[in-house]
Simulated scan of single mutants.
Amino acid sequence: MSKLSEQDIEKYLLRFPDWTYSNNAIHVEFEFDNFKDCFSAMSRIAFECEALNHHPNWTNIYNTLSISLSTHDAGGVTKKDFKLAEAIETIVEVQE
């Protein structure tokens, strides 16, 4: 899978208004009502990551989940990252 240009990344990001692009990755932060809801979303996201064989860099502090997506083999953001971002958005939207 080939790395997307910054122009293409900006076009894709129009569909993901909460996501930003910097340092060769796309980033988002979600805040949940509590740790349990945050961890539940992380667990559901993990299953999707395994299905796509694509894994995020993420951190969790109490009720906040920060995610960065980049395709390491390509050295930046690819369509694979946006496919996972779309799945993450669907999971988090259902959670809310």
Rank of each mutant, 00 (worst) to 15 (best):
M1P: 14
M1N: 12
M1Q: 12
M1E: 15
K3H: 14
L4W: 11
L4V: 08
S5H: 10
D8T: 14
E10H: 15
K11P: 13
K11T: 11
L13D: 10
L14T: 14
L14H: 15
F16L: 12
P17R: 13
D18K: 12
D18G: 14
T20R: 15
Y21Q: 02
S22G: 08
S22L: 09
N23S: 14
N24E: 05
N24K: 00
A25Y: 01
A25R: 04
H27L: 00
V28S: 03
V28Q: 03
E29M: 09
E31T: 06
E31N: 06
F32R: 00
D33T: 07
N34H: 09
F35G: 01
K36T: 13
F39P: 03
S40A: 08
A41D: 03
A41G: 05
I45C: 06
I45M: 05
A46Y: 01
F47M: 08
E50N: 09
N53W: 11
N53G: 05
N53P: 04
N53A: 13
H54E: 03
P56K: 06
N57I: 00
N57C: 03
W58R: 01
T59L: 11
N60M: 11
I61G: 01
Y62S: 06
Y62N: 06
T64N: 10
S66A: 09
I67K: 04
S68T: 00
L69E: 01
L69D: 02
S70V: 00
H72C: 01
A74Y: 15
A74D: 11
G76F: 03
V77Q: 03
T78I: 05
T78M: 05
K79T: 02
K80R: 10
D81M: 12
D81F: 12
D81L: 15
F82I: 08
F82Y: 08
K83I: 08
K83Q: 13
L84D: 02
L84T: 06
L84R: 01
L84W: 11
E86L: 09
E86R: 10
A87I: 07
I88V: 13
I88Y: 08
I88N: 02
I88D: 04
I88K: 02
E89S: 13
T90P: 01
T90I: 07
T90K: 10
I91M: 06
I91K: 02
I91Q: 04
I91P: 00
Q95P: 01
